[in-house]
Amino acid sequence: SHLLLTEPAPLAASQDDSTNDGSLRTLLTLCDLLNRELLVLIGWAKQIPGFSALSLVDQMSLLQSGWMEALLVGVAWRSQASAGEELVFARNLQLDEAQCRAAGLADLYEALRHLTSRYQAMNLSPEEVVTLKAMALANSDAEPVDCPDSVQRFQDGLHEALQEYESSRREQHRAGRLLMSLPLLRQTADRAVQAFLRLHRHRRVPLHKLLLEMLDAKA
């Protein structure tokens, strides 16, 4: 219930109007949205029970390692409801396959649709989504870790919450199924990071400083 309460309201995209090139405009709008989502994500992380007890170094490591996974849980969750096969980055930024392809994000589209249909098939509850998001951050396999015991305690707290929630619903296999979906999330996030790095390096799409800093940490 704490995670449900601290879940930030979805952001709206602010349309970039610095260029007439439609697909570049889409990219710039998307990158601006991502940058603002990152800011919100960092504020959100501090509110997860146990996160602020970690050393500053470990907080940084977990975020640098797990930010894309945590953000993509949100995108995949929002995209489930989309009737057409769009990716719902925001209510006012929904991209279909053709738009993603035109923007050079065909690979990201495919990866995210795959994740979305996996979540759809699992019929996740809001409680499961917020827990999955927090676990993605806690389980990000950041290296090096300053205090492994504290990170372990942070993970254990979330795992315990998930198990308690599922046993209250008498769902014996759900916690395990959720954990078994984490590898696909990791894979999807890796592909997303590569896609944005490509945009920046090969197509010289300008990125905001925070987004660039977080992508660089993964490069």
Binding site: G43, L56, M60, L63, K209, E213, M214, A217
Partner: peptide, 15 residues
């Protein structure tokens, strides 16, 4: 750490 100064600053802000 110098490389990640924005994240560092954001985490240090108390709010």
């Amino acid at each position: 750490k110098e490389k990640h100064k924005i994240l560092h600053q954001l985490l240090q802000n108390s709010t």
